[in-house]
Lab assay of single mutants.
Amino acid sequence: KYSDMIVAAIQAEKNRAGSSRQSIQKYIKSHYKVGENADSQIKLSIKRLVTTGVLKQTKGVGASGSFRLA
């Protein structure tokens, strides 16, 4: 599940300011076997996790910027 992968990526990075979408994508692609549409799936999952309150956006708008666990 992409949401689990995103949470794992943010936990692994341990950046106080949060993790960027690009760094999350890079982590997921190197640690998991994902399909061609992974980028758009990650983007959608990040937006969903922010609206449900699992992630907090520290910089930027939408799916860009930095995110950390709430």
Rank of each mutant, 00 (worst) to 15 (best):
Lys1His: 10
Lys1Phe: 10
Lys1Met: 11
Tyr2Phe: 10
Tyr2Thr: 03
Tyr2Leu: 10
Ser3Ile: 11
Ser3Gln: 11
Ser3Met: 12
Ser3Thr: 14
Ser3Leu: 10
Ser3Lys: 11
Ser3His: 10
Asp4His: 12
Asp4Asn: 07
Asp4Pro: 05
Asp4Leu: 11
Asp4Met: 11
Met5Ile: 02
Met5Gln: 02
Ile6Phe: 00
Ile6Trp: 01
Ile6Glu: 00
Ile6Thr: 01
Val7Lys: 05
Val7Ile: 15
Val7Glu: 02
Val7Trp: 03
Ala8Gln: 07
Ala8Asn: 05
Ala8Gly: 03
Ala8Val: 05
Ala9Cys: 15
Ala9Gly: 02
Ala9Pro: 00
Ala9Gln: 00
Ala9Glu: 00
Ala9Thr: 01
Ile10Ala: 02
Ile10Arg: 00
Ile10Cys: 05
Ile10Gln: 00
Ile10His: 02
Ile10Pro: 01
Gln11His: 13
Gln11Arg: 14
Gln11Asn: 07
Gln11Trp: 07
Gln11Thr: 11
Ala12Val: 05
Ala12Glu: 04
Ala12Gly: 04
Ala12Lys: 04
Ala12Asp: 05
Ala12Phe: 06
Ala12His: 09
Ala12Thr: 04
Ala12Gln: 06
Ala12Pro: 00
Ala12Asn: 08
Glu13Asn: 12
Glu13Met: 15
Glu13Lys: 06
Glu13Phe: 09
Lys14Ser: 10
Lys14Glu: 08
Lys14Ala: 14
Lys14Asn: 14
Lys14Tyr: 08
Lys14Gln: 12
Lys14Thr: 07
Asn15Ser: 10
Asn15Trp: 05
Asn15His: 08
Arg16Leu: 10
Arg16Cys: 15
Arg16Lys: 12
Arg16Gln: 12
Ala17Gln: 10
Ala17Pro: 03
Ala17Lys: 10
Gly18Ala: 04
Gly18Ile: 02
Gly18Val: 04
Gly18Phe: 03
Ser19Leu: 10
Ser19Ala: 10
Ser19Glu: 02
Ser19Met: 11
Ser20Phe: 03
Ser20Ala: 03
Ser20Pro: 03
Ser20Asn: 06
Ser20His: 03
Arg21Leu: 15
Arg21Thr: 14
Arg21Pro: 08
Gln22Gly: 07
Gln22Glu: 14
Gln22His: 08
Gln22Ile: 09
Gln22Met: 09
Ser23Thr: 08
Ser23Phe: 11
Ser23Glu: 09
Ile24Asn: 00
Ile24Val: 02
Ile24Arg: 00
Ile24Thr: 00
Ile24Lys: 01
Ile24Gln: 00
Gln25Trp: 09
Gln25Thr: 15
Gln25Leu: 15
Lys26Tyr: 07
Lys26Met: 09
Lys26Phe: 08
Lys26Trp: 15
Lys26Thr: 08
Tyr27Asn: 01
Tyr27Arg: 01
Tyr27Cys: 03
Tyr27Ile: 02
Tyr27Leu: 00
Tyr27Thr: 00
Ile28Trp: 15
Ile28Gly: 00
Ile28Asn: 01
Ile28Leu: 04
Ile28Ala: 00
Ile28Val: 15
Lys29Glu: 07
Lys29Asp: 04
Ser30Cys: 14
Ser30Val: 08
Ser30Leu: 11
His31Gly: 01
His31Cys: 08
His31Lys: 04
His31Trp: 03
Tyr32Arg: 02
Tyr32Gln: 00
Tyr32His: 02
Tyr32Phe: 13
Tyr32Gly: 02
Lys33Pro: 11
Lys33Tyr: 07
Lys33Met: 11
Lys33Arg: 10
Lys33Thr: 10
Val34Cys: 06
Val34Phe: 03
Val34Leu: 06
Gly35Arg: 04
Gly35Cys: 15
Gly35His: 06
Gly35Pro: 09
Gly35Ala: 07
Glu36Ile: 12
Glu36Arg: 15
Glu36Cys: 11
Glu36Ser: 13
Glu36Gln: 11
Glu36His: 11
Glu36Gly: 11
Glu36Met: 10
Glu36Asp: 11
Asn37Met: 06
Asn37Gly: 08
Asn37Glu: 12
Ala38Leu: 11
Ala38Phe: 11
Ala38Cys: 09
Ala38Asp: 04
Asp39Met: 08
Asp39Glu: 08
Asp39Asn: 09
Asp39Thr: 07
Ser40Val: 13
Ser40Phe: 13
Ser40Pro: 05
Ser40His: 13
Gln41Asn: 06
Gln41Ala: 11
Gln41Met: 14
Ile42Met: 02
Ile42Ser: 00
Ile42Lys: 01
Ile42Leu: 04
Lys43Ala: 14
Lys43His: 11
Leu44Arg: 14
Leu44Lys: 14
Leu44Val: 08
Leu44Gly: 06
Ser45Glu: 15
Ser45Cys: 15
Ser45Lys: 05
Ser45Met: 14
Ile46Arg: 01
Ile46Trp: 03
Ile46Val: 03
Ile46Cys: 04
Ile46Gly: 01
Lys47Phe: 09
Lys47Ile: 13
Lys47Asp: 13
Lys47Glu: 13
Lys47His: 11
Lys47Pro: 02
Lys47Cys: 14
Lys47Thr: 09
Arg48Asp: 09
Arg48His: 14
Arg48Val: 12
Arg48Gly: 06
Arg48Thr: 08
Arg48Ala: 10
Arg48Asn: 10
Leu49Met: 11
Leu49Arg: 01
Leu49Ala: 02
Leu49Gln: 01
Leu49Trp: 02
Val50Gly: 01
Val50Arg: 01
Val50Asn: 01
Val50Pro: 01
Thr51Ile: 13
Thr51Gly: 08
Thr51Gln: 14
Thr51Pro: 00
Thr51Trp: 10
Thr52Ile: 14
Thr52Ser: 13
Thr52Trp: 07
Thr52Val: 09
Thr52Gln: 13
Gly53Ile: 03
Gly53Glu: 03
Gly53Asn: 03
Gly53Arg: 02
Gly53Lys: 06
Gly53Trp: 03
Gly53His: 03
Gly53Ser: 01
Gly53Ala: 02
Val54Leu: 05
Val54Met: 06
Val54Pro: 00
Val54Cys: 07
Val54Ile: 10
Leu55Tyr: 01
Leu55Thr: 04
Lys56Ser: 08
Lys56Gln: 11
Lys56Asn: 06
Gln57Cys: 11
Gln57Arg: 09
Gln57Leu: 08
Gln57Ser: 07
Gln57Ile: 12
Gln57Lys: 08
Gln57Asn: 06
Thr58Arg: 06
Thr58Leu: 12
Thr58Tyr: 10
Thr58Val: 13
Thr58Pro: 04
Thr58Ile: 13
Thr58Lys: 04
Lys59Asn: 09
Lys59Ile: 08
Lys59His: 08
Lys59Thr: 09
Lys59Val: 08
Gly60Ser: 07
Gly60Ala: 08
Val61Lys: 14
Val61Cys: 14
Val61Gln: 11
Val61Asn: 12
Val61Phe: 12
Val61Thr: 10
Val61Ser: 12
Gly62Ser: 07
Gly62Tyr: 07
Gly62Leu: 05
Ala63Phe: 09
Ala63Gly: 14
Ala63Ile: 09
Ala63Ser: 12
Ala63Glu: 12
Ala63Tyr: 08
Ser64Ala: 10
Ser64Tyr: 10
Ser64Val: 08
Ser64Asn: 14
Ser64Phe: 09
Ser64Trp: 08
Ser64Thr: 14
Ser64Arg: 10
Gly65Tyr: 15
Gly65Ala: 15
Gly65Pro: 15
Gly65Glu: 14
Gly65Phe: 13
Gly65Cys: 15
Gly65Trp: 14
Ser66Leu: 15
Ser66Glu: 08
Ser66Ala: 10
Ser66Ile: 13
Ser66Asp: 07
Ser66Lys: 14
Ser66Gln: 11
Phe67Leu: 10
Phe67Thr: 03
Arg68Met: 14
Arg68Asp: 06
Arg68Ile: 15
Arg68Thr: 13
Arg68Gln: 14
Arg68Tyr: 15
Leu69Glu: 04
Leu69Gly: 03
Leu69Asp: 03
Leu69Tyr: 05
Leu69Ser: 03
Ala70Glu: 04
Ala70Gly: 05
